[in-house]
Design a protein around this nucleic acid. Structure first.
Lengths: 266, 266
DNA sequence: AAGTGGTCTAGACCACCTG
DNA sequence: AGGTGGTCTAGACCACTTA
């Protein structure tokens, strides 16, 4: 066990660094940062390593405090920060849990498309294409792979009341999602990101989107049931897992006659 | 002075309500909520009433603690919450300040348009039209006015390197922005929301946007220098001030050949 | 009854800013 | 030197959940 150098209250943050865990290499938590930031880093590392999987409970606050040799208040501050970032969910009286895409409450965490009238409906999915190919330069850059690395490409439609609304092209690293097939995608009930976390242990934490208006090409127009050249919302998404590692590239075309993309600014 | 009923640590939140300020009607803070929530409500009320204006400093934490008869930690929690919502800005060693749209750092808080290459540039403005008219049913509903109430309508272009990129139509309550003229809009340097807060005391706190892809009409195409029927990003924004009061309706058309709308999901 | 997270307090010391 | 917000601790009690 590493010696406990200093644990007095109010010790300068710079002088107080967490003792290394038994034999583990210390790398995740940058030294010279507030204690709760270091705790946050260690918790993130454990999440990355899969110590607690999506939907599972973390140890209680007193347990974590003992484990990290800090006060419960400091652990709480780290947990609150991770909760604010959407990585954890806290439930009074029950515990602290790893956020998941597979729950009714937070289902479609990343879906911003809303019907022009009425509440958000569940959409039907229709898979059009599934293929294994080599990453183009563009896809490789987006997923931080090498050009030519194997990738999976999925093309699918989302339909609302039988009408096509979204056409998605999705690229994934074949190495990361080894064993993913069209059949498994078809069979899975619920959002795709739920499958990713339960079957492949890949948690989608955050995403960046770039939105443009484009004119529909012939193929796209046919699939979406609109005229060629009609206006479509193009949504280019890069989704990231822990440690800001990009794991999905998605190019969506949204038909916005009866739906709109909702956003909040603050 | 109202009697101080109870101030013991750990007192149930429900049983502990803040004493009413001298003669003031208690309404902002819902009773039966945590103390820091009540403090937050009182602070928001003071912001609404203009006790501290945009960019000004609030009293220090110890002062506020004394004023509300709670501990500094509780005040801190309320301030942290308001900071997270973007209403306040904290600066170590200096104080806590009312967030403003007129600062270099947070300029264009609400502008999500980014150039396809390069960093965010300052755009040129060109005012096309300014008129005083009566609210249509639609505008009245969005601004929570009565149909027929006087409103101001502004039409303007934003240009990047001389090329038109954004065409905005903006509706404002004439009562709230009494005295706003085309000349004052022209003369003001910096973002429009900076003018609103400094000249009219109206702080834009948050906004909701609905985004769609549309085909350019003849007028719009001419103003934006594109072909009629070309795809445009339509951004419908409702901006709110304190107490979730809508004060601006804005209909923007974005030309997304060389720019995109950036968004973060988490 | 026991365990969980949530609130509130009090006090210490730190880092930063201004005079 | 004296003020500001930022971090850390310790302890008390509350509300919610489960058994």
């Amino acid at each position: 066990m590493a010696p406990q150098l200093c644990c007095n209250p109010g010790m300068p943050a710079a002088a107080r660094t967490l003792p290394a865990a038994d034999g583990a290499v210390e790398s995740a938590a940058p030294a010279f940062s507030p204690l709760y930031q270091q705790i946050k880093g260690l918790l993130t590392r454990s999440l990355t390593l899969g110590e607690w999987k999506a939907g599972e409970a973390l140890p209680s606050e007193p347990e974590l405090a003992q484990r990290f040799k800090v006060s419960q208040g400091t652990v709480r501050k780290a947990l609150d920060a991770l909760t604010a970032e959407g990585l954890l969910v806290r439930r009074q009286g029950k515990g602290t849990f790893v956020a998941t895409h597979a729950e009714a409450q937070v289902q479609y965490r990343f879906l911003r498309l809303m019907p022009e009238r009425g509440l958000r409906e569940a959409m039907q999915r229709r898979f059009i294409d599934f293929r294994r190919l080599r990453a183009s330069a563009e896809v490789a850059r987006a997923l931080e792979l090498k050009a030519g690395d194997p990738v999976l490409q999925v093309r699918r439609l989302l339909l609302s009341e039988g009408r096509p609304v979204v056409l998605d092209d999705i690229w994934l690293s074949a190495r990361l999602f080894k064993g993913l097939t069209a059949e498994r995608l078809q069979a899975y009930r619920g959002p795709m990101y739920g499958l990713f976390e339960s079957e492949f242990g890949v948690q989608m934490i955050r995403a960046e989107e770039r939105i443009r208006a484009v004119a529909a090409g012939a193929d796209e127009a046919a699939l979406l049931g609109i005229g060629e050249g009609g206006p479509l919302l193009q949504v280019e998404r890069r989704a990231f897992t822990y440690a800001d590692r990009p794991v999905e590239l998605r190019l969506g075309l949204y038909q916005t006659d009866a739906h709109y993309y909702r956003n909040e600014l603050s």
